[in-house]
Amino acid sequence: MLQIDCPWCGSRDQDEFQCGGEAHIVRPATPEDLSDAQWADYLFNRANTKGAHAEQWCHSGGCRRWFNIVRDTVSYKISSVYQAGASPPQEKP
């Protein structure tokens, strides 16, 4: 049971959240200009990262805000939380 820091509400149980998968996948501005393969890449292909993974979460059982976290997919440690639309923090050296 993860404990996730909602940027607004603070630490809450995983039960209150929904995971939206990989973050920072931007919808193409002009889909009609894309080939089937390019569109499929946007639609289906994900990095499936082992290690630090930027992902979207929504505090659906609370304030209903979407935000991003960086979570290690092996240890489940959450290294940062940042608001939707913000850039992922640079990895510490």
Binding site: Q18, G20, V26, R27, Q56, C58, S60, R64, R65, W66, A84, G85
Partner: peptide, 13 residues
């Protein structure tokens, strides 16, 4: 409802 909020908040703020 969740789907609509998601688009508004994450893609079209």
């Amino acid at each position: 409802m969740g789907w609509m909020e998601r688009w508004l908040q994450t893609e079209w703020p």
